Amino acid sequence: MIAALTLLLVFQLVGEVVARALGLPVPGPVIGMALLFAALLLRGGPGENLRQTAGTLLQHLSLLFIPAGAGIMLYGDLIAAEWLPLAAALVGSTLLAIIVTALVLDALVKRRKAGEDALP
């Protein structure tokens, strides 16, 4: 478990270094996750140790919401004062995600149908 956690943290660190060195507007952990994904693709998937550690982390995922909840409690007044822009951003980003998902799904269905029609 320690080796798998170390591996996850090393990829996060590498992502942070890449993000800061290149001045990218993407968070380091996201870059690290993409690099981990690429490494796992090249390796043929995660080992059993990494799989078990990831499963354990996912079982306790709800603990990661505690800092967000504390932030909401701490900045409740600011959130109440800025509720309209926050609500607009929430609704807008949700609608945008739904629209993009629908467009991608439509394109994939058309592509699959075109591939099936091309078969003899």
Rank of each mutant, 00 (worst) to 15 (best):
V17K: 01
V18R: 06
A19M: 00
R20F: 08
R20I: 06
G23A: 07
G23D: 10
G23R: 06
L24I: 07
P25E: 12
V26L: 15
V26Y: 12
P27S: 08
P27E: 11
P27I: 03
G28Q: 08
P29M: 04
V30L: 14
I31K: 12
I31E: 11
I31D: 11
G32S: 11
L35I: 13
L36D: 12
L36M: 09
A38C: 07
A38R: 09
A39E: 06
L40A: 12
L40F: 13
L41Y: 04
L41Q: 13
R43G: 08
R43I: 05
G45H: 02
G47N: 15
N49E: 14
R51N: 07
T53Q: 09
T53A: 12
T53C: 06
T56D: 01
T56I: 07
T56Q: 05
T56S: 12
L57N: 06
L57R: 11
L58A: 12
H60F: 06
H60E: 03
H60A: 06
L64S: 15
L64V: 13
I66C: 05
A68H: 04
G69L: 11
G69N: 07
A70W: 00
I72D: 00
I72K: 02
M73T: 03
Y75L: 10
Y75N: 00
G76Q: 09
G76L: 14
D77N: 08
D77G: 00
D77E: 12
I79Y: 12
I79N: 02
A80H: 14
E82Q: 15
E82I: 07
L84P: 00
A87H: 11
A87R: 10
L90S: 13
V91I: 15
V91F: 09
G92H: 01
S93A: 00
S93G: 00
T94P: 03
L95I: 15
L95W: 02
L95A: 14
L96H: 02
L96S: 05
A97Q: 14
I98V: 15
I98D: 06
I99G: 04
V100A: 10
T101S: 13
A102D: 12
L103R: 15
V104T: 09
D106S: 13
A107E: 09
L108I: 05
L108W: 03
V109M: 03
V109E: 05
K110S: 04
K110M: 04
R111C: 00
R111P: 01
R112D: 05
